[in-house]
């Protein structure tokens, strides 16, 4: 009857989004009057016991080297077996690329209802009701999970990390790992930059910047703020910027704390990917640009004059 949180890691280091999921799982367990535990597949380089500070009592580990390859089919089998062995009633994932790959398979295998994209703790007053994003950030839905076992995939950056004191006991789980039909041939990580989907701050440019040669100031501002860079679709389509920076309905959907949009009109399809940002800043020379309606702060002005001055001011407060 406990809560089990899937702990995702990158070469042994626990991902930030998994710390959010752990905090969510611990808060949920407290609400349900039960305990939360974590589940690690593969091996951590950091001390698993220290994850107790996020409110979990136990960390279960299945440390088979075969699990270093993410094969959703294999993972689903291992996680389901682990859930059975540990008596988990609710499984929590982070709704990241890994979560999207694995959580649905686990849910189908357990015949457990899934809510992916959860933004708040479940309401337990009338059953088990989870709030999630729908209509690409334009609305929320409250979804009741009607099955006995439940799976929740929490949106990145929707639930804050809660760290306190405490240490977890670490227990190895004997679970058989089936053979994989997936072979990873190459991994290509964009190094040296903040990954867009994990970034807390994002500086983004649109067609208003006229051409790729003007992105220096976008990159400089991003670097000063420790932010990732993004762009609108026409900018990626014109190859001014790489495709992995394209945000919106058909690109990445992001929810950073701060989104600075420079020379972007704020078309509804662009907003669909960024409207969950906590604070939106718009710099556009057109006072009628629709983006201002979705913004918290803004300047109506020429980006080529405004942005360099902003950069100077940011340097001044550093």
């Amino acid at each position: 009857m406990s809560v089990l949180v899937f702990i995702d890691h990158s070469e042994g280091t626990v991902k930030k989004n998994s710390l959010e999921a752990l905090s969510y799982g611990a808060a949920l367990a407290a609400k349900m009057g039960t305990d939360a535990a974590g589940l690690v597949l593969g091996t951590l380089t950091e001390d698993a016991a220290s994850l107790g500070k996020y409110g979990i009592k136990k960390v279960y580990q299945v440390s088979d080297a075969a699990l270093n390859v993410l094969d959703a089919q294999v993972y689903a089998q291992v996680i389901t077996e682990a859930a059975g062995k540990t008596g988990a009633q609710v499984l929590v994932f982070s709704n990241t690329t890994t979560g999207k790959s694995v959580a649905p398979r686990v849910a189908a295998r357990m015949k457990a209802g899934l809510v992916s994209g959860a933004v708040a703790l479940p309401d337990l007053q009338n059953g088990f009701v989870v709030k999630k994003n729908v209509f690409s950030g334009k609305a929320f839905a409250h979804i009741a999970i009607t099955s006995a076992q439940k799976v929740i995939a929490v949106n990145p950056n929707a639930f804050s990390i809660i760290a306190g004191e405490g240490s977890a006991t670490v227990e190895a789980l004997g679970v058989s790992v089936p053979a994989s039909k997936v072979k990873v041939v190459a991994t290509n990580k964009i190094t040296g930059e903040v990954p867009l989907t994990e970034a807390e701050k994002v500086v983004s440019g649109g067609r208003g910047l006229k051409g790729p040669e003007h992105w220096g100031m976008v990159e400089e501002m991003a670097k000063l703020l420790g932010a990732a860079t993004a762009c609108s679709r026409p900018v990626a389509d014109a190859h001014w910027r790489p495709h992995h920076e394209h945000v919106g309905q058909t690109g990445f959907a992001i929810a950073p704390n701060l989104y600075i949009a420079i020379g972007i009109s704020g078309a509804i399809q662009h907003l669909a990917g960024v409207n969950r940002s906590k604070c939106i800043v718009v710099i556009n020379k057109d006072p009628e640009a629709p983006f201002f309606k979705a913004a918290d702060y803004g300047i109506v002005g020429d980006a080529f004059e405004v942005v360099p001055k902003m950069i100077e001011a940011i340097k001044a407060i550093r």
Partner: peptide, 29 residues
């Protein structure tokens, strides 16, 4: 295994706070 209980629209934004174009430092502040 799931059903929609209710939908909800996000609260309307309070409105944008505009800073004059000649004072970007104020925006940063």
């Amino acid at each position: 295994l799931t059903s929609v209980v209710q939908y909800e629209l996000p609260p309307a934004k309070a409105g944008v706070k505009l800073v004059p174009a000649d004072n970007p430092a104020e925006l940063v502040r």
